[in-house]
Amino acid sequence: MSFEVEIKEGIAVVAVTAGRLDASVAPELKKVVSNVIDDGTSRIMLDLQRVQFMDSSGLGAVISSFKLTGQKGEFVICNMNEAVKEIFELTHMDRLFDIYPNADEGFQKMCA
């Protein structure tokens, strides 16, 4: 497993445990998020703390996961390192997501 899921107060925190979010783990992310939604949670926080490198397949999986949560759901991201942030900026995806420097802050904003 390259992911850990913890559900607290109706929010699913999906933590990536792999160091590289690339083609080898991208399909698993979509599956994990899809399962979380099927189980009734559509408010998701993706925690990228352990991700050192993300490639185009990883980005594709994040966007697909975001699309899965739909209009009523919520999808935020926290703990991006500089390299990952650069990819989000290059592709203007930083304008699409609520991005938080750490999980606590993201959690507080989602609960507010």
Binding site: S56, I63, S64, K67, L68, T91
Partner: peptide, 8 residues
């Protein structure tokens, strides 16, 4: 939704 084959 199942395939997000995009390009830059």
């Amino acid at each position: 939704l199942n395939s997000s084959r995009y390009f830059t």
